[in-house]
Amino acid sequence: MTKKILLSILFAASMAQASIQELVPKLSAANLEVQTQAQLDLLAACSNAGRPGAEDERKSICLEMCSALKKSPPPAVASQLLRNLQRIGGAESVPTLVTMYGSSDPHVADDARQALAVNPSPEAGQALTAQLKMRKARSARETAGLIEALGERKEAGASQLVAPYAGSPDLLVFNAAVKALGRLNEDEGIRALATQRAKETGFRLTQLNAALLQSGRENVFEMLYAPSESSEVQASALLGLLLVQDAAEQK
């Protein structure tokens, strides 16, 4: 039985290998029809490998794509591989994704960041956290991307790291931090958002309010249901209070 399973894994791996190895050069073919078909074939292969109950096949094709990425393919090919890893990549892909995040091509680097953002393994969250801690981001856009990724993952404990960015004068970083803190919905982050409100007006204040309102916290709704607030903020806070109280009564 064990022999049978091993043989099937080896078979799946060899199939994936052949498939990816054949597809990679076509992804940068001068003939755009060939390139288009290769993209579709890669998607089909990854979709099939990602089907329920085919974990070995999924892992195998991901490792093959990682292997292809290590050979420094042209940016367009790297992006295609990374975008498929966004869909089916797991823990096995994380080391390669971290390497690719360091790519000198900003689009390839961001594809790798996106793949880390949606990778289900804890290692991906740790890698993103480490990148932000190192503060090696080369631009505001890159910093914003890392913050966004942590927010989208709802990476537990990330608020401490993200909170200082809520006061950033750079709009990209500010927006990313505010939205991430709202998603993370941790005490420290909510406090940071509430503190920052006093310093903001206009659309920056709108973003802060939106992040706070999505927290679902009664004390936040009470704070925002004030005559000095805009009608839409008051309305949202009022509904929040009603829902919170209704939920408490039902308990």
Partner: peptide, 9 residues
Amino acid sequence: DRPRRAPYT
């Protein structure tokens, strides 16, 4: 959902 390119969130 779909991954989002930075800084569009």
